[in-house]
């Protein structure tokens, strides 16, 4: 599994993501600047968290239209794996690679706290080292994590099993149907608001996020 991390101006979680990926794969991921257009050789493209382009206009709106995105669309069309976390999830929805949108948190507050996530399916390359229904600890740190999609889209996500994770306890950001992460129809793109990379080492106080990266490393 050769991984690359896309770096936009204003992204600030790329190093944490690199640590998590290297810990599981044993290889340093390639850092891909947003002006690059060649992703050949990469199996996994990760879009990390942060505030790309200052989150001007809408969260992820500018990043979703930057030069590297054409290559990311090609990577997706080839069936490549993509993981978007936090701002990365927002960017994937803005780019149309995942459905829905992330609105301002229902309570208007930036939420920075642990979030327990329930695994909705464990037969994907991202989640196969968890059990279906398992609850694991993650961390949320976002102002715009309120997942929204119209009812028909939500029904399709539920019906086709494309919901990856739901908030297991309080749904503090107000996400529709408590959705914390979604898959693409081919299950090769995962977008999620909470940060699994924050919990991959005992030094971080928890390793609940590590199975996600271990599973990717074995793919």
């Amino acid at each position: 599994m050769k991984a690359g991390i896309v770096v936009f101006p204003g992204i600030n979680r790329e190093r944490d993501m690199a640590i998590a990926l290297e810990l599981s794969t044993g290889v340093k991921p390639r850092m891909v600047w947003h002006k690059e257009t060649d992703l050949s050789g990469l199996d996994l493209v990760v879009i990390p968290g942060g505030f790309s382009f200052g989150d001007y206009l809408r969260c992820g709106a500018m990043a979703a239209r930057s030069p590297v995105m054409a290559a990311i669309h090609d990577h997706a069309a080839r069936g490549g794996y993509i993981l978007g976390v936090c701002n990365g999830f927002q960017i994937l929805t803005e780019a149309g690679l995942l459905p829905g949108a992330l609105l301002r948190n229902a309570g208007l507050r930036f939420l920075s706290m642990d979030a327990n996530l329930r695994v909705e399916r464990a037969d994907t390359v991202f989640t196969r080292q968890y059990q279906k229904g398992q609850v694991f600890r993650s961390v949320m740190a976002h102002g715009d994590g309120n997942f929204f999609a119209d009812t028909a889209t939500l029904d399709r996500l539920d019906g086709e099993g494309l919901v990856a994770f739901r908030y297991a306890d309080d749904n503090l950001n107000g996400s529709a149907r408590a959705i914390a992460g979604v898959f693409s129809p081919n299950l090769r793109i995962l977008g999620m608001m909470p940060h699994p990379e924050d919990m991959v080492d005992p030094l971080m106080g928890c390793t609940d996020g590590k199975p996600l990266f271990d599973a990717l490393a074995a793919a």
Binding site: L57, R58, A61, R65, T93, E94, P99, G100, A101, L103, F148, A149, D150
Partner: peptide, 9 residues
């Protein structure tokens, strides 16, 4: 359509 508004929301 292409940038200023997000048609989903």
């Amino acid at each position: 359509r292409k940038l200023l508004a997000n048609g989903v929301i």
